[in-house]
Structures are given as C-alpha cells and as structure tokens.
Design a protein around this nucleic acid. Structure first.
Length: 417
RNA sequence: GGCCCAUUCGUCUAGUGGCCUAGGACACCGCCCUCUCACGGCGGCGGCACGGGUUCGAAUCCCGUAUGGGCCUCCA
C-alpha cells in the first residue's frame, strides 16, 4: 500500500470553524496513524473573499489544538498557472469550452459517475444531471472545483477527507480528473456538526471559532478528544483517550455517516476530567497560559499557590477568576453573622502554626462550642473571608490568605462592615 | 423545485439478521460521602421516526412516507 497522503484545505475567509477543525482532525489522525503525510493547503482561489490575518490565525489555532502538518504551507493560488494550462489542454481535447470569456468543463452526456465513499459507501450520480461548471473565470482565475482536484493530484493526495457539503461537488471533480487522465483519490465525506440547538452551527447562537473555545478555557487535548468523538468512536465504551491513543485507534471505517450535535455539557465534563488528571505543576502552568491569553496579570506566584485549591472544582479555566478573586482583591462580606465572625477571629488569632490542619482543628472546636454543625458554623466565616457562599476549601484558603488578612476580614465582618 | 445524503435514549454513540428484555457516556432525578461548591460511589428515568415487505427470526436487508441536512455561484 502506498503511503497515505492527505490535506487540510481551509479557505482564508475568517477564523477556523470548529466543524472544519473536526474535519482536519480526522485528516490528521488518519495521516499520523498510518505513517502518512498531511499537508496544509490554503484554498485562496477567491482572492476577493480573503481575510488578511486568516492564514496566520489558522496556523496558530491548529498549533494550539496540537495538529501539525508536513512541509511548508501551500497556497492554492500558487498553482493557478498550472491549472490554466490544464484548462487549455482540456479545451484543446474537447473536454472544455469557452463561454463568455470563461472556460467551462464539458460533462459527459450519459452514463453515471460513482465512487465508494470511505464513510458513506457507494454514491452515484447521473452525468446528465451535472452542469458544465466554470473552471476558469473570465478574469483568468481558476475556480475551486478545478484547482482543488488538480492540486490533489499534483500533491499526490491519496485520501480526500472533507465535509459532506462537498459530496455534490465530487462527481464533477471525478469527471474532471478522468478527463485529465489522472488517478482518483479515495473520498471520505465526514458528516457536519450541528449546534446544541440541533440546527446548523451559527456564529450568532454559539461558539464556532476554535479561538472561542480556547478563550473559554478549554484544554486543547480535551477538546481534541471531544472533537474526535463527534462522528467517530473506538468501541462501545471508551471515551477518554489521549492524543497518541486517538492516533493509534482512529480509522475511517468507524466514522459514522450521520451529522452530530455539539454537546457543550459533555465537552465541559470531559474538559474537567482532563484538568483534574493533570499533575499540579502542569495544571498551574496551563492555567497561567490561559491567564496570559486573557491578559489577566494577577501575580503568578499566587496563581500557582491557588491552583491546587481549584483543580478539583472547576472544569474550564474561565471559571477560575471568579472562584479565587478573593485572594487577589478585597471582598464585601454581605450577610455574614457578626457574632460567629468575631468568635472565629478570636479563635484563629491563637492558632499555631498557621496551617490548614490546625485551622481546621480550631474551627471545628469553635463549631462545637457554638453548638452548631460545621456546615452551619463555617458559612459565615466563608462569607466573611471569600465574599461568597461557594469557595475553595475553607481551611486551605485561610492558610493561603494568611493570618493577618483573615483576621482583618473577620474583624470587618464582625463589625458589620 | 431537482439531485444527493442522513435518521438508535434530550445529546454523543455501540450495534453489520438470532449474543438486544437494545449496551456505554454526558445531561437530568434520587440516595450516600461532605466545611460550601465540586469530585467520587450507588441507583433511576429515557431510544431503534413511521408504514409496508423479505425471513423461522430485523435496530440490522428491501420499498415507500415523514423529518432533517447538503449542493444546485464566474464561493470554497
């Protein structure tokens, strides 16, 4: 078997769409899992729609997710001359003709064109239903439906793995390739991804750009794992798979034909699984990377210190700031029982050493003395110190906050301030 | 409208004629654990779109209907 070679072919018209990313991921998994090669080819045939920064953005997004490619980035426009030449050849051979300055491909008049799609099985079209499509515009620029198959041949692409919206283009591209006397690649049309409202993903209704997911604090390996499971499965029960496991296990045969819906709750859950499994140092590091990206400049040593307190609590990095804000900024202890706060202040003033175990011991003793359940007695303290009814572990939080700051906040709450 | 495609719990899916009384995961609900939240443990709810065939036997094969989607650009 020849070495598989695939390509990712985004058009530089904006930021990377999550659906496109999933398609690229399948390409990447296929290439990496089969000792193949994968190219990144920017489909910039339509210069009028090109967005200046898109090419850079696409590359950095892909890198962030953990998808790489072989060789330099290619541009479809670079092969325009070659495409024009082939178009002229087709005209000379009668496979194409001029029409108002453009060149149209002449479809076969009868018979059918079909292929065995690697994910959908056999698909067949009647040639008489295919229209003669423009392959070179009147201004001389070749069109996508012509350059794409031509480039695929030129680049030695063996497997064209792309979105199902290309199914209808495929018969024409096959006919063009046949007219050019070229070998056909294997086609694999992967299903679309819908939004969690069951409809087509819409920029208006949900996150669609890969960068949106990054900004929301998803961890790249978790997102990759999640995306891989949209339309593909390994077996009937395996969900959490590391990058190398996905690479080893992926196969086109197990890609399903029906469209999938993005389930953000499941993504959140999976992301939480990944975050909790991280080594503490790595967790803190990733957290800092996210904060960097968000331009939140809280002191990194404090961030590192707070990281272990939230690792089990949050499932996305964007939940971090609100969770630990009290470490970095003053709080407003609304509604904290003054009497309990004062008692706690007195009790904690004597704790030695100032560490979670002894703090816990003191506060449990305090609850006893107050004749309250710990859950009841601790709430005012939590409120006074963290400003919230929900917080990381109380004792660890107090330890990290320090005795002075803790006593100060309790005193303020005790005085109803 | 024409052509092509899809259809298993709310969601992602397992399932390729008998192993299916349809399995797992997320979500949801209940209980347990517990300093809040979360994690974790246990249990529960819930599905083969519909109608015809084929077959001893169908979620699995065929036909039709319905629903959803894609394409029908000198867009990609």
């Amino acid at each position: 078997m020849q070495t598989p070679r695939v390509r990712m072919a985004p058009s530089p018209t904006g930021f990377l769409h999550i659906g496109g990313v999933r398609t690229f991921l399948f390409n990447w998994l296929y290439a990496r899992g089969n000792s193949g090669e994968i190219l990144l080819r920017i489909e910039n045939t339509d210069t009028s729609r090109e967005v200046a920064e898109a090419t850079e953005q696409i590359q950095s997004s892909l890198h962030w997710l953990g998808i790489d490619w072989d060789g330099p980035v290619r541009f479809q426009l670079d092969t325009a001359d070659r495409a024009r030449e082939l178009a002229r050849q087709l005209v000379a051979e009668g496979h194409a003709y001029e029409d108002e300055g453009a060149i149209r491909f002449r479809q076969p008049k009868d018979g059918t064109v079909s292929w065995d799609d690697a994910v959908r099985g056999r698909i067949e079209f009647r040639n008489d239903q295919l229209s003669d499509l423009v392959i070179v515009r009147s201004d001389g620029r070749p069109t996508y439906n012509f350059v794409s198959p031509v480039d695929d041949v030129q680049d030695g692409i063996t497997h064209v793995i792309r979105g199902e919206d290309h199914v209808s283009n495929t018969p024409s591209q096959i006919n063009i390739l046949r007219a050019l006397d070229a070998d056909l690649p294997v086609y694999a049309h992967v299903p679309n991804i819908n939004g969690d409202d069951g409809r087509k993903l819409s920029k208006r209704r949900q996150a669609v750009a890969l960068e949106d997911f990054r900004a929301r604090g998803y961890y790249a390996p978790a997102l990759m794992n999640f995306l891989a499971l949209l339309g593909w499965s390994y077996d009937d029960h395996t969900t959490v798979m590391a990058r190398h496991e996905l690479v080893e296990r992926f196969s086109l045969e197990r890609v399903g034909p029906s469209p999938a819906t993005l389930d953000m709750q499941k993504l959140d859950w999976l992301n939480g699984v990944y975050l909790r499994n991280l080594q503490p140092e790595e967790y803190a590091l990733q957290l800092c990377h996210w904060l960097d990206g968000q331009q939140i400049d809280w002191p990194r040593d404090l961030v590192h210190a707070t990281a272990p307190l939230v690792q089990e609590k949050i499932e996305r990095f964007d939940q971090y700031p609100d969770y630990v804000r009290f470490f970095f900024e003053p709080v407003a202890p609304d509604g904290a029982d003054p009497a309990v706060c004062e008692a706690a202040r007195v009790k904690l003033a004597e704790v030695e050493p100032w560490a979670a175990p002894s703090i816990e011991q003191a506060l449990r003793a305090l609850a006893d003395e107050l004749g309250e359940k710990p859950r009841v007695a601790f709430q005012p303290i939590r409120l006074a110190v963290t400003g919230s009814k929900i917080s990381p572990g109380l004792f660890e939080s107090l330890e990290l906050l320090g005795r002075d700051e803790t006593l100060g906040r309790l005193a303020a709450a005790a005085q109803g301030r």
